[in-house]
């Protein structure tokens, strides 16, 4: 008969201490609102974009560049790009919270912000180039 081995405990902190943990982070509502508001703004913006793409179907580069250079279209395009990548940022944070634990959690959250932010910026710069650059048709 083996002598019973007493189990080794890595954590002896009380369950209540663990449940209370570090307390409330006093944030989360803003993120929750941002998820829903960005999703809602994407609805009309995406609808507008799809309609415009059908209208421009088959158009050549000059016409599309001219279309994208108009202030109203450029504004709508920038709004679409910003909303999309903001929504992606907010949504991907949730996935990181769910699946990435331990030491990788915080770097992953900042990584998501950095990548989505950079991609969004790239999109906005592209739209600005269309709107503020030399008109392509007057070459």
């Amino acid at each position: 008969m083996n002598a019973p081995v007493s189990p080794r405990h890595d954590v002896m902190r009380s369950q209540l201490g663990r449940a209370r943990g570090l307390g409330s982070g006093h944030s989360g509502t803003g993120h929750w609102i941002a998820e829903r508001v960005s999703a809602a703004t994407l609805l009309p913006l995406s609808g507008w974009f799809v309609v415009q793409m059908f209208r421009l179907g088959g158009a050549d580069y000059e016409d599309v560049a001219k279309w994208g250079g108009k202030p109203l279209n450029a504004t709508m395009l920038s709004a679409l790009v910003i909303s999309s990548f903001y929504h992606a940022e907010v949504g991907l944070q949730v996935i990181v919270d769910d699946y990435v634990h331990g030491k990788a959690h915080v770097p992953a959250k900042f990584g998501v912000r950095f990548v989505t932010g950079l991609l969004g910026l790239l999109g906005v710069v592209a739209v600005l180039k269309l709107a503020l650059g030399r008109p392509a048709s007057k070459a």
């Binding site: 409330s24 982070g25 944030s27 989360g28 993120h31 929750w32 919270d97």
Partner: peptide, 14 residues
């Protein structure tokens, strides 16, 4: 409500 206002405590609900 204060003590529940947290990314995980409450908002980990999907």
């Amino acid at each position: 409500l204060d003590s529940l206002e947290d990314t995980f405590k409450l908002y980990a609900c999907r």
